[in-house]
Write a protein that binds this DNA or RNA. Structure first.
Lengths: 337, 337
DNA sequence: TTGTAAGCGTTATCAT
DNA sequence: ATGATAACGCTTACAA
């Protein structure tokens, strides 16, 4: 049988000890040039690939970073992931990714199995872990970054921004622009969506314009189609009085826009639309959709840099980073006089 | 220091041997009820989490499935990934995912590091691996599925469809609908895009309508914005004579559509547009975009089922699966008389 | 610069 | 049903 090639095989073929082969791979500066050449030749000849499990076990370093996201289908996390890989990949770390389907219970289970890989660090989304999951994470004694949200009491480190504040600011800008009957569309209603809704409510209340009939939400998954559906709900629930709508994300906003096009509602003349996340399509549809640009990729990069720094024993200057956001007001919310 | 809890700790606390604890976890049917209860209590009390590396080393089963995709930003792979997780997750397997950035050289490097995890199976995209990468994979002696493409000579198993044939069929349908001056927009031009272009060329040649001036491609990444740009290129390159355009994917098609809206080109009256992949937006824009529905999620599920079956030692009935596609003709390509 | 010996935490094998 | 012992493939600690 084609038994797997091990360090011992390479050692034997090159006439050195196993540890020397290991050094050639991991601390080449400690090995003489001559030996290095011999060993490298043997490695190539045999097609030796080091066994990570053995290495992890012996060195107590798994080379794994655990990443916990709520959804693989939500494109928002693509960009975060890209940022994470951008840093882990050159550093030689592997990512083990799990998807919790927005469920804290599943999340706890997945964190548990992830910890079985003895990850050297974890990047987790948000802060609504179960009490037990938080304990597990804390007990793991590894660097942990909570991303996306600005977290009240971080388990360890945090990179994110305040969704409530962002939403509030958007709504205030829309009101300042002259819209009054401003509806809200929300789907999935995960913690970040909840925060955005809270921001909407606060701003509307402050302006004494809050009308719960204009708040249309569903726990069902968010999608463009859902945006169409919720928008129709808003139209009927508001008796057609709405002059603007703030959507919890760009998918819903696109759905609302496409639905307006079908209903012959002119945007922004009859209906202003604002989204959240600033996905690529938003700036390119007609009219361009206002949205909130969120540094997703950068969050991934930053979070990963923070954990790698900690692993290396370096000090992380800012353990809580507010990465901010940028409100992009475009034609879809420009008051027409 | 808070040393990690091991099997031995649990064994000691529950007054049994380590192997018994291991059995409670992995083969509970072989352990008496009384011992099971004692051990479970100890596990919970200590918060014991099994070390996967040790387990992998001792059992020669890593519980890891390696997944190689060309791009994390391409939403097409989200759905495939979702399908993969749908199967691996309940089966207790972890996914280690790598992104090759569409580069066979990077791919070879990533496959090598992935193999270091001693994955029990691999799912890789397409067939343009380097010769060496193919050798590495073959030598690994694990089940391997190549997905997305229909592969000429599979390394092991294959789930995909023929992109050339799909494109050819689409173009034939468009010609049958009455369009003649049919352009092509392509970006990235990875192997699947190349196949689609080939299909376009074949169909156009067959109809004696091929005009290379109408083929606009770029090696740069695909995006909606790129669709806008390429479409403008087509308009100028064709002297405004095009009556239809087949885009290598839906991002480009959306870009073309949005650009038409801005240029006041009526779709489909003055310009028919057809995409590929049938992403969610395509059916919801105005007019709805024709596209080719591809069973991405299903491919992920199927490929994973095939490898898990093989791991279990079961026979896989069909080692090469053509998962097909479905051409969705919508209003964007409906000939108006 | 190189090597020896021990051990990482688990499971396979063989006993009892 | 339970346990003793020896791997698994690598790295750490120490020695030469």
């Amino acid at each position: 049988m084609n038994r797997r090639v091990t360090l011992a095989d390479v050692a034997e073929l090159s006439g050195v000890s196993a540890i020397t082969v290991s050094r050639v791979l991991n601390q080449p500066e400690k090995v003489s040039e001559a030996v290095k050449i011999k060993v490298t030749a043997a490695i190539n000849k045999l097609g030796y690939i080091p066994n990570r499990s053995a290495s992890a076990l012996a060195s107590a370093r798994s080379g794994v970073i655990g990443v916990v996201i709520p959804s693989l289908s939500n494109n928002v996390f693509n960009d975060v992931l890209r940022g994470i890989y951008e840093v882990t990949s050159p550093a030689g770390y592997q990512v083990v990714l799990v998807d919790t389907h927005y469920s804290p219970i599943e999340e706890e289970r997945m964190i548990r199995t992830l910890l079985g890989q003895a990850p050297e660090a974890m990047i987790v989304t948000g802060s609504n872990q179960t009490e037990h999951a938080r304990k597990l994470l804390a007990k793991a004694q590894i660097p942990i970054v909570q991303i996306m949200d600005k977290v009240q009491e971080p388990i360890d480190m945090n990179v994110g921004f305040c969704h409530r504040k962002a939403a509030m600011e958007v709504v205030e800008m829309l009101l300042a622009e002259g819209y009054n009957t401003l509806g809200f569309l929300g789907a999935r209603m995960d913690p970040r969506a909840q925060q955005r809704l809270k921001g909407y409510r606060l701003a509307m209340e402050q302006a004494e314009l809050l009308n719960e009939d204009l708040v249309i939400t569903t726990p069902r998954p968010s999608s463009i189609a859902m945006g169409c559906e919720l928008f129709k709900g808003l139209i009927s629930s508001s008796g057609g009085l709405c002059d603007a709508v703030f959507c919890v994300n760009d998918d819903l906003a696109l759905g609302a826009l496409f639905e307006c096009q079908r209903m012959n509602i002119s945007v922004p003349r009859q209906m202003a639309i604002c989204g959240f996340n600033d996905m690529e399509a938003s700036a390119l549809v007609n009219p361009p959709l206002s949205s909130v640009r969120v540094p997703r990729y950068e969050m991934g990069v930053k979070a990963t840099e923070m954990v790698l720094q900690t692993i290396k024993g370096e000090d992380v200057a800012e353990r809580v980073v507010d990465c901010g956001y940028e409100i992009k007001m475009r034609e879809s919310t420009r008051m027409v006089v």
